[in-house]
Write a protein that binds this DNA or RNA. Structure first.
Length: 814
DNA sequence: TTTTACTTCGTTTTT
DNA sequence: CGAAGTAAAA
């Protein structure tokens, strides 16, 4: 059987064990996707399983896409019938069909974090809770984790009995959920939870899916939460052909409800389960792998495994410490450029990984200055940008009209002179009659005290009604164009664009492109379908390996990827591991950070560089943090300290005796004693200067910071409460970068955003007569060339002078 | 109703 | 340091 010939023994076993539950512990780079795809192929080609009886679940669309592609290549016929999708899109597809059985409309909308926040704010107002005392963020967290654990409102209320705080949360939970229901909306958690609810309430629906999905595979299983586990368990219950693949050492989504017990206890839930370990790594060199192993070894309660590689040679892990984060960024940018220019590396083979998104800014600035092409992954999701969300809110309103959050968002955007007073009256009316906000607005003339606002409201409701017309069905791009056009959205944005520098118009333009792309790729394009697709994409999904750029992203985003050259930036205690984890009294928080470090290290194929800075601005204050404890967990013989030439030239390099002076954490941090051995190798304490100060520098009085001498290493279990917010701030001495660069785009010229496209050609010039759909004929007065578009000034015969963007205006020469 | 100036507060991490 | 929210003014 040739199909599995290219696999090693364990992989082959995993791919061919198809009956019954199977747990595959797949170490980093051990070829798990290979196993999964071959397993699917094996099921179809060797076992005669029908492709549509196979379900493969991933976490990101990107992973799903890649898997689909690889299955396509592997399987001769029918690969397209295999259901490969993310948890969320799988559930949405099911719910679109059956959610009416549990009391929602099938054209429900999906709320993102931003919408959730809006709802939560409204809930706080409604329940008359002091927003100072009850942070919506915290409450959202409480609600979300309840859902992750499949705890219903009723259950939550029962559990809360007697606990004041909990019962407040229970009230909030109930109100929040009611609001969502009223808006016919689901949040991300609901998508899973409601599917489970559906299956529980409608056995016949569950049964039909059990029949459909006779062979189930779950990727990244270590990141599943309780709700997702339950979902999978129910689906697999009948045939029990469930294969889960994951790596407990790469479980990094606890904050999102991931339950590491799902993978650690899999054999408890499925006693008859077979279990296979994949330990051969095909990705990294020895030193990198050894470093990864050395770090992760310090975690407790993991499934013991040791990665090994057949690869020969390899260079040590590089470690560079800098005085400031600016120098760190400079080094990184120069280092990469040098690699490309002198060593023939490719930008696309390099990635800079960091703990927090905030770190991206500095790196980005430097990349621009050094002319290194890059892409930042993550941060604010494209679809979360204001202008994009505005347009989407219009689309949502056109699509369903039951989503009050969307209506509220756009009712006065662009400005229509409809303010709070008007809105409140309309809302009261809506509540009184039990109708949606939009319907209330349509009946504005019935609302007492609104007569004056009616003429302002009318154009809005008319517009929506018109765009709901049959002729726009499925024409998403046209709809967007119409919305932009008829609301004067481009002019509205134009005002912002003048000073801001953020290319908002460009973003709207890009949304238009995405809509057009959707219409093309979808079999039966619909507005609902587009909104759904858009709601469920992550930033990482759009990463395109084809463009030759350095990738900047968080460690979380990097999971599942690999690069020849990896730089882990900001290896500092307090940053990575983050201060939350450092100060937590729950060891598992620190262990999660360590897993993150493990993920980061194992992304590297050939070269790994760790960098850190002694001084760094965080939230407007300068912090002096020691080198990350994870660095100290890497044996010395695997590390090379290195300084780039730029460093030397600028006098930025650090003299040997102040270099990487570690404090003796080992002893003072409970539960972390294993780290100690190697930490001591870094030499004892006693250095001078800020670099050796533990934690944050505190200006002024040294009450808690008085522990400065820190690592005396004596047996005292005095863990300094150091890494907490200092009150006073030490100003950084002059930043490297003149603050004069008004926007990154300006500097970028070419390198911002993936899709830099030249503006489409226009066939008219200054002085020409042109025709516009809405304004009629006019004369072109002026044309400004902008990076993404032409800005055209037209003197219309009837409508007067207008400034518009060529791509939207669709002017025709007459 | 809209704009502006001032205060407060925070970030891990994201489907 | 910024974003975001609030109070006050226009």
């Amino acid at each position: 059987m040739g199909l599995l010939d290219t696999l090693n023994k364990e992989q082959r076993q995993a791919a061919s064990t198809v009956e019954g539950p199977l747990l595959v512990i797949a170490g980093a780079g051990s070829g798990k996707t290979r196993v999964l795809t071959h397993r699917i192929a094996y099921l179809i080609e060797e076992m005669g399983v029908m492709p549509w009886n196979i379900l493969a679940i991933t976490f990101t669309n990107k992973a799903a896409g890649e898997m689909r592609e690889r299955v396509d290549k592997l399987v001769e016929f029918g690969a397209g019938q295999v259901w490969v999708a993310t948890f969320h899109s799988t559930c949405v597809r099911i719910l679109r069909r059956y959610i009416d059985k549990i009391g929602y409309d099938n054209n429900f909308t999906i709320y993102d974090t931003d919408d959730q926040k809006t709802v939560m704010k409204a809930v706080l107002g409604y329940l008359d809770l002091d927003p100072k005392k009850y942070k919506e963020r915290a409450l959202m967290g409480a609600v979300s984790s309840a859902k992750d654990e499949l705890i219903t409102v009723e259950q939550f209320e029962r559990d809360a009995a007697g606990d004041y705080n909990k019962s407040i949360q229970a009230k909030v939970y109930r109100e929040y959920q009611d609001t969502l229901k009223k808006n016919n909306a689901l949040d991300f958690d609901d998508i899973i939870v409601k599917t489970v609810e559906l299956f529980r309430k409608c056995p016949e629906v569950l049964d039909s899916y059990q029949e459909r999905f006779q062979y189930i595979m779950v990727d990244e299983y270590q990141d599943t939460n309780t709700a997702q586990f339950e979902l999978v368990r129910m689906l697999a219950q009948k045939y029990r052909n469930l294969c889960v693949v994951g790596d407990d050492d790469q479980s990094i989504y606890k904050f999102r409800g991931a339950n590491i017990r799902n993978i650690l206890d899999f054999e408890k839930y499925f006693p008859e389960a077979a279990s296979i370990k994949l330990e051969q790594n095909y990705r990294s060199t020895r030193p990198i792998l050894d470093a990864a192993n050395a770090v992760i070894r310090n975690n407790t309660g993991r499934k013991e495994k040791a990665l090994w590689t057949g690869r020969k040679g390899g260079v040590n892990v590089r470690l560079c410490q800098f005085d400031s984060a600016y120098e760190e960024a400079e080094y990184i940018a120069c280092n990469i450029r040098q690699k490309v220019e002198k060593e023939g590396a490719e930008y696309r083979e390099c990635a800079v990984l960091y703990r927090t998104n905030a770190q991206a800014r500095l790196l980005e600035e430097r990349m621009l200055m050094e002319g290194v092409p890059y892409n930042v992954v993550g941060g604010t999701n494209f679809y979360a940008r204001k202008e994009v969300k505005d347009i989407l809110a219009y689309l949502k309103t056109i699509d369903s009209g039951r989503d009050d959050v969307a209506v509220k968002r756009i009712i006065n955007v662009p400005k229509r002179g409809i303010g709070n007073a008007t809105l409140e009256k309309a809302e009261d009316f809506a509540q009184l009659y039990g109708i949606g906000l939009f319907e209330a607005l349509e009946r504005a003339d019935e609302i007492t005290g609104l007569s004056r606002a009616v003429p302002k409201i009318r154009p809005f409701t008319e517009l929506i009604r018109k765009l709901r017309g049959e002729e726009y069905r499925g024409k998403v791009a046209d709809l967007i164009r119409e919305v932009v056009e008829r609301t004067g959205y481009e002019e509205y944005l134009g005002d912002f664009d003048e000073e801001g520098g953020e290319d908002r118009i460009g973003n709207v333009d890009e949304l238009l492109t995405k809509a057009a792309g959707y219409e093309e790729s979808s079999e039966e394009p619909s507005l609902t379908g587009f909104l759904e697709e858009v709601a469920l994409v992550a930033d990482i999904d759009n990463v395109d390996g084809d463009d030759n750029r350095v990738l900047l992203m968080t460690l979380h985003s990097a999971k599942g990827l690999e690069f020849s050259n990896v730089i882990l930036a900001g290896m500092e205690d307090g940053l990575f591991p983050g201060y939350m984890a450092v100060n937590s009294d729950d060891i598992s928080d620190l262990e999660e950070e360590r897993r993150l470090a493990y993920v980061g290290i194992t992304r590297a194929k050939d070269e790994l560089t760790l960098t850190c800075a002694r001084m760094r601005m965080i939230k407007g204050e300068t912090q002096y943090n020691p080198v990350s404890r994870f660095v100290a967990e890497i044996p010395m013989e695997l590390l090379d300290r290195e300084f780039g030439p730029q460093n030397r030239r600028k006098g930025a390099w650090v003299s040997d005796d102040s270099f990487v002076r570690r404090n003796d954490f080992g002893k003072t941090f409970p539960g972390d004693d294993k780290a100690r051995g190697s930490a001591e190798a870094w030499g004892s304490d006693g250095a001078n200067g800020p670099g050796s100060t533990f934690g944050t520098v505190r200006g002024g009085s040294g009450e808690a910071g008085g522990n400065g001498g820190t690592g005396s290493g004596s047996g005292m279990e005095t863990r300094p409460k150091a890494i907490i917010r200092p009150k006073a701030t030490v100003k950084a001495d002059k930043p490297y970068i003149a603050k004069g660069i008004s926007s990154l785009n300006e500097l970028a010229g070419i390198s911002k955003g993936a899709a830099y496209k030249a503006p489409a050609a226009i066939d008219y010039g200054v002085g020409d007569r042109v025709f516009h759909v809405k304004y009629g004929e006019g004369t072109v007065m002026h044309i400004d060339r902008e990076p993404r578009d032409y800005k055209v000034t037209v003197e219309f015969d009837k409508a007067g002078q207008k400034i518009m963007y060529a791509s939207f205006a669709k002017l025709k020469r007459v």
